[in-house]
Amino acid sequence: MGPYLIRRFGFILLTLFLASLIIFSITQFLPGDIAQVILGQFATEAAIANLREELGLNDPLHMQYLNWAGNFIRGDWGDSLVSRTPVRPIVTQRLVNSAMLAGLALLIYVPLGIILGVIAALKRDKLPDQLITGVSMAFVGLPEFVSGLLLISFLAIGLGWFPANSSIDPDSTFLESLPYLILPAITVSLTGLGYIARMTRSGTIDVLRADYVRAAELKGLSGRSVLIRHVLRNSLLPTVTVVAMGIGWLLGGLIVTEAVYGYPGLGRLLVYGIQRQDLPIIQAGSMIVVAVYSLSNLAADILYGLLNPRIRVGK
């Protein structure tokens, strides 16, 4: 496992490096001059020239990149162009908020998706299966802003069970924000729920066809022990990968969901940053999202290897 881990970490570093190149170069296309954006329309030529010098905008591009990347690694993520405060505390605080939302959503949709998927597989092509597959397919396709707004109108405005708006104080603790988290978490969950249910279903169906399951049945084991000891142990393995692959979706879903509910997470920060052309926010926020994504993929691969003795990766 050692050499494998080192190689994977190396690959993540390479990915982060290339992603940082992409993010840096894309943000260079910014319409207009950054110094102009910072100082506003009525700034004098001299002031703009000064600021350009100060920000290092006159340096060659590769020097600018090295500067930016070096500072980023050292923890200096620059100052927000809008609020003029350091970016790092803002981004980390929003990251924590998004993590709370994502964590709650994962707690909802992973177990529920697995249960529904197993039920669908066991009742294959019968009514429960058709219902679960149909509904989960619909959920997979439903954009978060559609399902979120429908949830708001029924559960928040109609029944008054939950607050319709989650624009809480960004510094709230988990318990303080919990009531505001439930509706957004359900919204994010719907897509993931359908996805996990579908993948668990197909994984379980494959295993149910396997010879060793037949052998276990013929050996006279009870249906339940066949299911738990022989079927689930094998069919849930791919689900680990599926959960990890779904993280990309989850991150995208968070961006939209946070916008729907006004929840102060990383996604909303990024959308704000883009709307206000706040370059340092966009750069730091994007880098963090890419890092989280890569690390969660790595975690899934390692977990998969640990759970599945047959394919201990990298031996």
Partner: peptide, 21 residues
């Protein structure tokens, strides 16, 4: 392709559209 896939699609779309307008 792997590098493009290492950035969540919606984020990449947002950042590119920010640059292109």
């Amino acid at each position: 392709m792997d590098v493009i896939l290492s950035i969540p699609p919606l984020l990449l779309a947002m950042v590119i559209l920010f640059a292109l307008g």
